[in-house]
Amino acid sequence: MDCDHINKLIESYLDAELTLSDRRDFETHVTDCGDCSAQLEAMRALQNNIQNMHYHTAPCTLKQTIKNQLRDYTGEDTSRISWLKWSAMATGFVSVGALSSWLVLAYIMVSPLQTRFTDDIISAHVRSLMVDHVTDVESTDRHTVKPWFNGRVDFSPPVKDLKEQDFRLIGGRLDYINNTAATALVYQRRAHIINLFIYKYSPSQHSHKPQLLQRNGYNVIYWSRNGLNYCSISDLNKKELTEFSQLMATF
């Protein structure tokens, strides 16, 4: 591949649209070519900037209005859903309280689907600790961990170095949760391991509202950002896992 050809492939490479063999050829060329490497980094910087732009949350009233309109359409009595309005109000009160607004929906009702998914997450977390297979790639350097996923999953997981905040990156691995390929980034605080699972939206896995669940002694936090779903899990206490998740969510 010459430089002209490589230049045409930069965006497809960053958008994870190249075949595995093209991807390999591309990476080989870029490693040895300063010009192409500079082009790639400039485009990557632009894309990171766009991806980190503020993601708006739809106004709470919008969801309620849509729900009311849907009930009107099917001829259901909208007064029956007054508990939903109450719930929205309660959420509002919580948000002005001590809790971070990021997790205001922490205690919403959990669907059976979500419960099954959380069970899968817990199994994957426990399995990684039991069989001493926490990481496939062991590194404290995000520049080593992030490229390791290239070609292994069809998205690029954001890998953040949180050493200064006392969450040490110790590596990453591939996992498979509820028929979905997921990357697992592994962090450590004191003796506690945190698995951060990242996976794409799919028909069976929609985006997550930020929420915190507690099951089998583990804290589990879900959220979504930029087309990816995130789930952090650890035996770390609720406060510190929330701190970790917020740091990742604002990355």
């Binding site: 739809a58 849509i66 359409y73 259901e76 929609h206 985006s207």
Partner: peptide, 19 residues
């Protein structure tokens, strides 16, 4: 009502993206 419930379950998680 069942359609409405199914629709809400499938569509509302994408409300932020739509907005």
């Amino acid at each position: 009502k069942k359609d409405r419930q199914r629709f809400e379950r499938l569509s509302l998680p994408h409300l932020d993206a739509a907005y």
